[in-house]
Computed example of a mutant assay.
Amino acid sequence: MHDLKKNSKKPEVRRQELIDAASALFAEKGYEAVSVRDILNVVNGAPGMFYYYFKSKQDIYLASMEQYIAKRLKRKCRILEDEAVSFEEKLPIFRSMVEEDIQGYMENFAPRCDASISDTSYKLYDLVHMLDCMVVPYSRFIL
């Protein structure tokens, strides 16, 4: 009898691994040039594993962008809502975070002149969605 040790990861770890791989590939190649197989090759996975977590390539793309936006928004909100720090102290920090996020977006997600229409439309959606998520916290801070 063989003593086989199962080498599996927790579902949340595996899902995150897929998102990380997809995020890197989307940033490098654009949405159109990435396939589900490309993502699976990075994580050494099978199609069934991918479809257990995501319905489609579009689904993992949206999860990737949601995570990108959420991380940045959470970081800003933590600083903006800190009542121990005065508005005057927060303002330059907030400004540098906004500049950093815009620069990061442009480096990773800005449409390229050789991008397809769908790549460009996804990136435009991402930018609009990111701005939409930031309206309420930014408004509270400014007001």
Rank of each mutant, 00 (worst) to 15 (best):
M1S: 12
D3T: 10
D3S: 10
K5T: 10
K5P: 01
K5S: 13
N7L: 12
N7T: 09
N7A: 12
S8T: 13
S8C: 07
S8K: 06
P11T: 14
R14C: 02
R14Q: 08
R15E: 09
Q16S: 12
Q16T: 04
L18N: 04
A21W: 07
A22F: 10
S23C: 01
S23M: 05
A24T: 14
F26R: 00
E28K: 15
E28S: 13
E28T: 03
K29L: 04
G30Y: 09
G30P: 05
Y31D: 08
E32T: 14
L40P: 02
N41Y: 06
N41L: 03
V42A: 07
V43E: 07
G45N: 13
A46N: 11
P47D: 06
G48I: 06
M49S: 15
M49F: 01
F50C: 08
F50V: 03
F50L: 07
F50A: 05
Y52G: 00
Y53T: 02
Y53L: 05
F54C: 03
F54N: 03
S56R: 12
S56D: 09
S56F: 04
S56E: 07
S56L: 08
Q58I: 06
Q58W: 01
Q58V: 09
D59V: 11
I60Y: 10
I60E: 08
M65G: 01
M65C: 09
E66H: 11
Q67F: 02
Q67C: 03
Y68G: 01
I69D: 05
A70L: 05
A70Y: 05
K71L: 08
R72S: 07
R72M: 09
L73I: 08
L73W: 03
R75P: 00
R75F: 07
R75Q: 11
K76D: 10
K76N: 07
R78Y: 00
R78K: 11
I79M: 14
I79L: 15
I79Y: 05
L80N: 04
E83Q: 11
E83M: 07
S86W: 05
F87V: 10
E88V: 08
E88R: 03
E88H: 07
E89L: 12
K90H: 10
K90L: 15
L91H: 04
L91S: 03
R95G: 12
R95L: 07
R95T: 09
V98A: 14
E99K: 13
E100Y: 05
D101Q: 09
D101R: 04
D101L: 09
D101C: 11
D101H: 04
I102C: 08
Q103G: 14
Q103E: 15
Q103R: 15
Y105C: 14
A110C: 13
P111G: 06
R112P: 00
R112W: 10
C113L: 10
D114F: 13
D114Q: 12
I117Q: 12
S118C: 00
S118G: 00
T120R: 07
T120V: 05
S121M: 10
K123A: 02
L124K: 03
Y125K: 06
H129M: 11
H129R: 11
M134Q: 11
M134R: 01
Y138R: 00
S139V: 06
S139M: 09
L143G: 15
L143K: 13
